[in-house]
Design a protein around this nucleic acid. Structure first.
Length: 332
DNA sequence: AATATTTGCAACCGCGGAAGA
DNA sequence: CTCTTCCGCGGTTGCAAATAT
């Protein structure tokens, strides 16, 4: 069983950085003959390397269609969203970013995006709010320097947790909305509700930046065309999204003064750290059942019912493993 | 200016799955 | 069905460049 090590026992094979001569040999050979069998290629191309090393050099560096340079904000957004759904499936993520290699995306994640999420108070592995003590200490410290009025009056930890919960909900909304837009019309870029929004929550002097660029999102979404038949249950789900977005926009204006005194106090109780879509989840019942119950009983129509009920709808919609699987399937 | 530390990224390693003998 | 080979993936390492002390 098992498999023999690549490059077998040929310890005289060269390792380490490639020279320009080697690169040239590899490119010339592949341009003329294609790569064929990677194992056989080095000999045929006159390279003292193992096939694996050649493949890596080609796919990660020499391929002509590789895009170099900085990642755009849009690319960052795509990576974060896809990572929330797919986890560390770098090759899958790379298929959504033309010209970028899985290795490059993986490196970019590890060196930049991970840190970004951490700064936002999110665990980069789970995309859930961080709950480790160090982070809470930092957060508490930050909050003590931010003017949040009477939020901090009684128990700072409680406020910190509430803020985290708000940020996570916001991120969740953004994730689902982006996913939906990708599914319905890949040519239309999602509205600008990116993770900077949550960064603002923790990095800004003003708590009213919580809503950030969220305003107008529901209007933008309503402007889109979609085919209700293309996705089972989509219209109901869209209503949930729209109503929540509209409510959120309303909330955002109220938040200006004081989050906790706005009347939309988000209760934190056991197990109530909101969950973002996790990387792996088992399958389950169909999403249609989920959406039906959500849309008929919980989602307010034009006149909004209490915001709590909308959040409950969101929780039902987003926390269920089934919906994760559903969106995952669509993406893949 | 010299040294230490951190960062970014190319390349390597080992594993698992697919395919073929 | 078992075993072998190859490929591709994800995690990790090593090193040069950048930055801090």
């Amino acid at each position: 069983m098992g498999r023999s090590p690549c490059c077998d026992d040929q310890s005289d094979l060269k390792k380490g950085p490639w020279t320009t001569e080697e690169d040239q040999k590899l490119v010339d050979y592949i341009n003329r003959h294609g790569h064929g069998s990677w194992r056989a290629l080095p000999k045929l191309a006159g390279l003292n390397r193992c096939g694996k090393s050649c493949r890596l050099r080609w796919t990660n560096y020499l391929r002509p269609d590789i895009k170099r340079g900085k990642f755009s904000e849009e690319e960052e957004r795509v990576i974060i969203n896809l990572h929330a759904v797919l986890g560390n499936k770098w090759s899958k993520i790379a298929t959504h970013l033309p010209g970028r290699t899985d290795n490059e995306i993986k490196n970019y994640w590890n060196t930049h995006l991970r840190k970004k999420l951490l700064q936002m108070g999110l665990d980069p592995n789970t995309h859930k709010p961080r709950t480790d003590l160090n982070h809470l200490l930092n957060l508490s410290q930050l909050l003590s320097t931010v003017n949040v009025g009477n939020m901090m009056s009684s128990f700072p930890w409680d406020s910190a947790l509430r803020l985290q919960a708000s940020a996570a909900r916001l991120a969740k909304m953004q994730l689902l909305q982006n996913l939906y837009m990708q599914v319905t019309n890949p040519s239309i870029s999602a509205p600008d509700i990116d993770m900077k929004t949550s960064t603002s929550l923790f990095g800004s002097q003003n708590i009213n930046l919580v809503g950030g660029n969220f305003n107008g999102a529901s209007t933008m979404l309503r402007g889109q065309e979609w085919n209700p038949d293309s996705i089972p249950g989509a219209p109901n789900e869209l209503n949930t999204i729209f109503n929540s977005l509209e409510w959120f926009e309303g909330l955002n204006s109220n938040i200006d003064n004081n989050v906790m005194s706005s009347g939309y106090d988000l209760q934190i109780s056991k197990n109530q750290f909101p969950e973002l879509v996790s990387a792996s989840s088992p399958g389950g019942s169909t999403i249609n059942n989920q959406i039906e119950s959500t849309s008929t009983s919980d989602v307010p129509a034009a006149g909004h019912s209490s915001p709590t009920s909308i959040f409950e709808a969101w929780e039902k919609l987003m926390d269920d493993d089934t919906s994760e699987t559903y969106w995952k399937d669509i993406l893949q």
